[in-house]
């Protein structure tokens, strides 16, 4: 029989490690910040929007514009997920610009997971909408039949590498920018009086990095919408 006090022993229930890391903390903060912005902005919506409400509406209309432009009206049902994706990346990128804060979008595994979810669900949407006709995406119209054995594998691989290019693009941009900022900040300390030069450069780079943070969130969203467009309209 087991010891009567064994029931009070603390031990892990899951077979894998689920430590709450700084990366997970940054994601939680990003989600919390996005939630806070929108719950405050839309708490008391008026015809004449308050400043915070008009920020929320601008972001909403911006994302809706991306969908309308790249997918069309049929893409509207997918607005919630695209909107969430955009906000999550945008807040991740922008919070990364706060000194000392962790930039989770600089990690390929994070961006790759998002990209795989996007491409995977887009594929499922395409199959659900068009059935086996969806696979005509891999056989471009107008090509002569005899080059299909080469063309179709290339098309399939070009579809499969979408999550790689999508995730690498975001992660590389964020990593490179933050390494550059950190290097210039390091020069500022190391160069003493002449550190004013890299300091000026770092100030300029900070502005550029904020632009890139927003731009990359936009690019990720636009490409997701283009993939969605492929699945819905089949070119």
């Amino acid at each position: 029989m087991a010891s009567p006090i064994e029931q009070f022993q603390v031990k892990p229930v899951l077979p894998f490690d689920v430590t709450f890391t700084n990366s997970a903390f940054a994601m939680a903060v990003a989600v919390g910040a996005a939630y806070l912005l929108f719950s405050r902005g839309m708490r008391d919506p008026g015809m004449i929007p308050s400043r915070i409400q008009s920020v929320c509406e601008m972001i909403y209309e911006f994302v809706r514009g991306i969908i309308d432009e790249n997918v069309g009206r049929e893409g509207r049902p997918y607005l919630p997920v695209v909107f969430t994706l955009f906000l999550f990346i945008l807040f991740g990128n922008l919070l990364g610009m706060v000194p000392g804060f962790f930039t989770f979008t600089s990690h390929i595994i994070v961006t790759f997971t998002m990209a795989v979810v996007v491409v995977g669900s887009v594929t499922l949407i395409g199959i659900a909408r068009h059935g086996t006709h969806f696979f005509s995406l891999f056989a471009p119209a107008g090509a002569p039949k005899f080059i299909y054995p080469i063309l179709v594998p290339i098309e399939i691989i070009s579809y499969l590498i979408r999550p790689i290019s999508l995730s690498v693009r975001l992660a590389v941009n964020m990593t490179a920018g933050h390494i550059m900022l950190k290097s210039f900040a390091g020069f500022t300390v190391a160069m003493g009086v002449f550190g004013i030069l890299p300091l000026v450069a770092a100030v300029g780079l900070t502005g550029l990095e904020i632009v890139i943070a927003i731009l990359q969130a936009y690019v990720f969203t636009v490409l997701s919408c283009l993939y969605l467009n492929d699945a819905i309209n089949l070119h």
Binding site: I157, S158, L160, I161, I164, S165, V168, R169, V172, N173, V219
Partner: peptide, 15 residues
């Protein structure tokens, strides 16, 4: 340019 470069490299890595 960065976009195109990443696209090319992603093809090789993915393959």
């Amino acid at each position: 340019g960065l976009h195109i470069g990443i696209e090319l490299v992603a093809g090789v890595i993915g393959g």
